[in-house]
Every structure is written in structure tokens, then in C-alpha cells.
């Protein structure tokens, strides 16, 4: 496996996991962690790129906000 292959596959796996986290967060997470999002749907697709790019941060914050009980 070359360096290029490694970067390529890491990118692919990271992005794939990110898509999963993004879908889960939009369906199950958003309404519980952010009250202003309730009832607004049009803006949700706008969040997808960020959720895919930052999914580890998303999971960490999601957990933190749930534990705090907001």
C-alpha cells in the first residue's frame, strides 16, 4: 500500500463514517441538543457538510450536551 492509497482510503472511511453520523445527528440529535432547531427543517441539509467534516467533534459535543440535559 502506498502513501497515496493510505490517504485515499482514510479519506473514504472518514467521509463514510461522517455521512452516517450526519444522518443520525439530523434525525435523532439535533432537536434534543438545540432547542431553536425544533420545527425548522429547511436548514438541515446546510449542516451536512460540516457534520461530515467534523463528525468526531459532533459526537463529543452531542454527548456533552445530552449529559448536561439540554
Amino acid at each position: 500500500m502506498t502513501f497515496a492509497d493510505l490517504v485515499y482510503w482514510c479519506g473514504l472511511v472518514y467521509g463514510g463514517l461522517g455521512l452516517g453520523v450526519a444522518a443520525a445527528f439530523l434525525v435523532f440529535g439535533l432537536d434534543r441538543v438545540d432547542r431553536s432547531a425544533r420545527g425548522s427543517f429547511a436548514f438541515r441539509p446546510l449542516l451536512v457538510p460540516g457534520l461530515v467534516l467534523l463528525w468526531p467533534v459532533v459526537i463529543a459535543n452531542w454527548r456533552r450536551l445530552l449529559l448536561r440535559g439540554t
Binding site: 441538543v33 438545540d34 431553536s36 432547531a37 436548514f43 446546510l46 449542516l47 457538510p49 460540516g50 467534516l53 467534523l54 459532533v58 459535543n61 450536551l65
Partner: peptide
């Protein structure tokens, strides 16, 4: 890309 993707207000709160 990260900046553009986090420009929505949601990200500021989150």
C-alpha cells in the same frame, strides 16, 4: 471548507 461548512448559526451554538 471547514469554515464555510460551519458558517451557519447552528455551529456557533453547538
Amino acid at each position: 471548507l471547514v469554515m464555510a461548512a460551519t458558517s451557519h448559526d447552528f455551529w456557533l451554538t453547538f
